[in-house]
Design a protein around this nucleic acid. Structure first.
Length: 787
DNA sequence: ATAGGGTTAG
């Protein structure tokens, strides 16, 4: 009877029939009175094998454990197979546990044990156990086995221990193509393109022929590095060897072409492949997205849905969603989002992070934050995406809050998190948080990264610490165009145009090529310092010497430059000579200039143009309104206000904020909601009396309501920037800097008053408004009255 | 073999 069961089980193993196997298992349980141990070990052996072959390692392990311990010792193949089954698709910890159990029960592992258990270690990134197991290998004298050594190389490489991997590899007496491939794919995994290529050449030199796996292993690194020349060379090699028709190689080549921007070649590879699997389709869609042919990519996705009757994989949907984000197409984005819900991919972090980032990029809206809050699983990537997304959508305060929650929840900070956090500090001028971010970046080694340092330069300069920004810049081992641009922008907003220009020359001296943003930085620096002739010079040389076609933004800088300097007619002519239609922003720059230089007639003309171009804007109304009130034309002013109201626009209120002990306190004009409001008002009253004694006269032209003088004085005294400064003075120790940020341009009366306050309090005050910094000290402002 | 988060401009 027993033999019959053995034969039955063997039949089940051969046909991988779990269903029948389970029935037999039940029978055996009944026969043996639910006592496994009395069942013959041969049957248990077969049953274990069956469960392993059906990929049910847990069931297999349970049956295996009922074999008597003395017999289990000799079932080495079963041990190995169970470890393999766990190492295949987890739980990986079980593979490692089983390995130790095996060793502890005195069973000698074989060379077949190690590749499996090491695979489990690399899946878990468990270096500690991997190293311990490496020790066992040495003791068991398996250190020369190609199979085991290749597994060790693969393990070390996947865990990022490149030196250990190389050491094992170098000691190998013989190396087959698989061993070389382990090294090559390891380098490729870490983006070390040149090391991977060097090894391919070396292996050929040693007489080992690369196979199609070698090619497949090296292609991702080539693609990531954008080395299209090497990609083409490998393509040629594949053609000679006949590898190019293989799905894996063909897909890899397609991907390289896509990543290098050679869409035509990518399409040709795709067309030439006889067999296309889902990965091939995904790679092609991704190539379209990367090469800015996103619409075509989405079309291909639809075509695939019709032609191939399989549900798209998470990776494919992530690629498609990336496309929606790039197209700024919330409609299709939402559809794909629904589709992922239908396919139950909502627990796939990669998919949900892509959706999150799409909502953030297509903002500003509340979709991103809502989606984030409802995510069942979140990882550091999700946090990074929502932090940078919130900053991108103009909500830096929210970004800061999420960052602090993240810290509280103990979630690991990654480099990209910092890349979202530092701009949030820049926006808020939250110097204390920014400095913490800098410290943390040093500790984590992030400061070795050029982009992090670029963000630090930006953070310090926007927090008023231009010298610290320069210090970061000077300490960088490596700089890119962004570093120079960020530094120049910093000098520009601090009114240090000369320094910005000198940076530009230094940049040219070290051979860095200026880009379009470099010139925006240069032109806006000139504009803030009133360097009209320099600005004109750079605008011309930008096209003539550097072959950069001026964009709308460059024209904006020029209009701003001419306008601020009072050259209104020239600015007008400059706009008329533009090669394309000026947008509302350009006209607004001119309108702002009209306000500074009190030219009502031109302002009316310009305002009409703005309204025809962009009826939604409110800045236009505000500027015109202010201009009329300054000219005391109250009727015209009222008319503008009525028109604005009828059209349903509200002016965004002036808001100023200051960071005190890591908390950002915000104020609007006349704000009495702050807990310290009583003290703030008292301080301001004191200042008013002292200022008047020093010769201050409230400039009532900056009050845009037609009310009594006394009332005007009160309104002026409670402008948001004065409230924030007063709060700073009463809450910060005398040695702490006072840095206030405002969402609009600083008001003229406040500008005058703050100068007096620096005399009275003997403190330095910094105000950052929308266009630049004002450093007040001893009754003088760094802007030299030019802003 | 395909794959998620990122710096400078107004």
């Amino acid at each position: 009877m027993c033999n019959n069961y053995v034969q039955l089980l063997e039949a089940c193993i051969a046909s991988k029939s779990l269903k029948h196997g389970k029935i037999i298992h039940q029978h055996l349980l009944k026969l043996s009175n639910n006592d496994f141990s009395s069942t013959q070990s041969l049957l248990l052996d077969k049953l274990t094998r069956l469960y392993i072959s059906c990929n049910k390692p847990q069931l297999a392990e349970r049956v295996f454990n009922s074999i008597h311990i003395s017999e289990r010792k000799y079932k080495i193949i079963l041990w190995n197979q169970m470890i393999r089954a766990y190492a295949w698709d987890g739980p990986f910890e079980k593979a490692i546990d089983l390995y130790y159990e095996m060793v502890d029960s005195g069973v000698m592992p074989t060379k077949f044990t190690y590749p499996f258990v090491l695979k489990a270690c690399s899946a878990l990134q468990d270096v500690e156990n991997g190293v311990k197991i490496h020790g066992h290998v040495k003791r068991l004298d398996l250190g020369c086995d190609v199979y085991v050594c290749t597994a060790l190389v693969d393990f070390y490489m996947k865990c990022g221990c490149l030196e250990e991997a190389m050491e094992v590899f170098d000691r190998m007496l013989e190396r087959d193509v698989v061993a070389w491939n382990a090294m090559i794919s390891g380098f490729s995994l870490h983006g070390l393109c040149w090391d991977a290529i060097r090894l391919v050449l070396e292996m050929q030199h040693m007489g080992v022929n690369p196979n199609s796996s070698t090619v497949a292993a090296i292609l991702p690194a080539i693609g990531e590095a954008g080395r299209w020349r090497e990609g083409k060379a490998i393509h040629g090699f594949c053609l000679r060897r006949g590898f190019d028709g293989e799905e894996v190689v063909g897909t890899g080549l397609l991907d390289v072409y896509g990543k290098c921007g050679w869409l035509v070649y990518a399409k040709r590879m795709f067309g030439a492949l006889r067999f296309k699997n889902e990965i091939t389709w995904t790679a092609m869609i991704g190539a379209f997205v990367t090469c800015d042919a996103t619409t075509e990519g989405l079309d291909l996705f639809r075509k695939m849905r019709v032609e191939v009757a399989v549900s798209p994989s998470p990776v494919m949907l992530a690629t498609v969603i990336r496309g929606c984000a790039k197209l700024n197409d919330l409609n299709i984005g939402r559809q794909i989002h629904c589709y992922t819900i239908k396919l139950a991919y909502y627990c796939d972090l990669m998919v949900s992070n892509t959706i999150l980032s799409m909502y953030a990029k297509c903002g500003p809206n509340n979709d991103a934050i809502r989606f984030f809050e409802e995510m069942p699983l979140k990882d550091p990537v999700s946090y990074s995406a929502i932090i940078s997304g919130s900053v991108h959508n103009g909500n830096a305060e929210e970004a800061l809050q999420i960052f602090l929650n993240m810290r509280k929840a103990g979630i690991e900070l990654e480099l990209a998190t910092m890349m979202g956090f530092l701009p949030a500090c820049s926006h808020l001028a939250a110097l204390q948080h920014g400095v913490c971010g800098h410290g943390y970046s040093i500790v984590c080694g992030f400061t070795a990264d050029v982009s992090i340092c670029n963000s630090l330069i930006d953070m310090y300069s926007k927090c008023g610490k231009i010298d610290m920004a320069r210090l970061v810049f000077d300490k960088m081992c490596e700089r890119d165009v962004v570093s120079w641009n960020a530094m120049m922008v910093g000098y520009g907003i601090h009114g240090l145009a000369r320094e910005a220009i000198s940076m530009f020359h230094k940049m040219l001296n070290v051979g860095e090529k200026p880009d379009d943003i470099t010139f925006i930085a240069l032109l806006s620096a000139c504009s803030h310092s009133g360097l009209v002739n320099e600005g004109k010079h750079w605008f011309l040389s930008m096209t003539q010497e550097y072959n950069i076609v001026p964009r709308m933004d460059h024209y904006f800088c020029m209009v701003d430059l001419l306008g601020r300097a009072g050259l209104l007619d020239e600015a007008w002519h400059f706009i008329s000579g533009m090669p394309f239609e000026p947008d509302a922003q350009i006209w607004t720059a001119l309108l702002a200039a009209c306000r500074i230089h009190k030219n009502v007639e031109l302002a009316e003309e310009v305002s009409n143009r703005i309204q025809s171009l962009e009826p939604e804007g409110t800045g236009n109304f505000v500027l015109l309104f202010n201009l009329y009130t300054t000219a005391q034309r109250w009727n015209d002013a009222a008319h503008v206000r009525i028109k604005q109201k009828n059209l349903g626009f509200k002016k965004s209120p002036g808001c100023s904020w200051i960071e005190v002990n890591g908390i950002v306190h915000a104020f609007v004009g006349g704000d009495g909601s702050h807990p310290e409001s009583g003290k703030i008002n008292k301080k301001l009253e004191e200042f008013l009396a002292e200022m008047k004694a020093l010769g201050y006269k409230p400039e009532s032209t900056f009050v845009y309501q037609d009310v009594e003088e006394e009332e005007k004085e009160k309104i002026l005294l409670h402008h948001s920037e004065k409230l924030a400064v007063a709060f700073g003075i009463i809450s910060l120790k005398p040695n702490r800097p006072i840095i206030v940020t405002k969402n609009l341009r600083v008001c003229g009366d406040c500008h005058a008053a703050l100068k007096y306050i620096t005399i009275i309090t003997k403190r330095e005050i910094t105000v950052r408004d929308t266009s630049r910094f004002h450093h007040f000290r001893n009754g003088i402002c760094s802007c030299g009255e030019f802003w």
